[in-house]
Design a protein around this nucleic acid. Sequence first.
DNA 1: CTACTATTATCACCTGGTACTAATAGTAGT
DNA 2: ACTACTATTAGTACCAGGTGATAATAGTAG
Lengths: 188, 188
Amino acid sequence: MRVPKKERQVELQHTIEQNPFITDEALAVRFNVSIQTIRLDRMELKIPELRERIKHVATERLDDVRTLTESEVIGDMIDLKLDTSAISILEILPEHAFSRNAIARGHILFAQANSLAIALIDDELALTTRANVQFTRSVHVGERVVAKAFVSSHRQDGRSDINVESYVGDECVFIGEFTVYRSSKEES
Amino acid sequence: MRVPKKERQVELQHTIEQNPFITDEALAVRFNVSIQTIRLDRMELKIPELRERIKHVATERLDDVRTLTESEVIGDMIDLKLDTSAISILEILPEHAFSRNAIARGHILFAQANSLAIALIDDELALTTRANVQFTRSVHVGERVVAKAFVSSHRQDGRSDINVESYVGDECVFIGEFTVYRSSKEES
DNA sequence: CTACTATTATCACCTGGTACTAATAGTAGT
DNA sequence: ACTACTATTAGTACCAGGTGATAATAGTAG
């Protein structure tokens, strides 16, 4: 044995994780074992073949890119009463945080709250004109942030005030007041 | 001929563009021609085979996802005087905006300003604790937003106040006051 | 010496292709 | 009607990067 099996498998796992595009053949050379051994390792570790890995990365992309940018709401909306209140949940992933300390970047929490406030307004066009926010506790990777938004007033000048409070468990991590401009009509 | 060649090729182009994961076989069924015809079409149109297409999508992702999330600064930093001032530029792309009206989402401008404020602080750890922002004019897709940040005060309690103003041309589109907490040391 | 694990070797087969050659269908020009 | 030309189809050999199964070999521990 060149390297104990277990050790090799751990490294194999790592290697493939940070370069999913590597073939079994290349792995065999790298670890100085036969291709068959690599295949057995992959089986035990339940790592799919190259083509499946690539496909996975490709399809993930299609979901993923839309996280902070294209999606209408950042996080998953779990409750919505138009012009009244709304709730969304966002799980903090590594890419939402500073790499050095795994603390979520401020604009991620802001984005969740802001997009929730906008979604809450039942109007063609709603734009944030002002926001006042506080980050009351740092949020770490793996935590689930629940944002609760409620309209505090619909003004006559076409603006609405919305308060958002975000929690991890029962701890408040974010407080925000948003003023949004709504395009037209209704005062329900 | 079921459908003129040219017409089929235009549709083929489209079909593959919005679903790169389709095989030649599926395409052959769809257009009611033989697989070979599809292959000839792909050749003429210089469309690569399925696996290459998937690989392409997958590799693009690796660059792409890091745009609004992982990068340290949202936008391109073009000037930085630590603990003093900084400037970044962000071009508004379609995915930064509401699809219906091509107006940039508020949290995009916030993200640019916030990340610039954080980058400005010369410390191990800097976290936003409070922000007060105004969106003074809506920004459209294609416009380039120049954010200018400067430190207005370094307080003794470990916090710093930073003002950010963002412009499109000479029009101010965003004004923000950020208070950030810095982990340790120095008052330069 | 045996039992057992780890590794390697073969072989048939699969998908989704490439590359090439050849046959066939349909249509236009003279 | 014959020819020229394009479009389409068919078939063959081959490729990468595998799966799945079977069998042989190496190394080590009891």
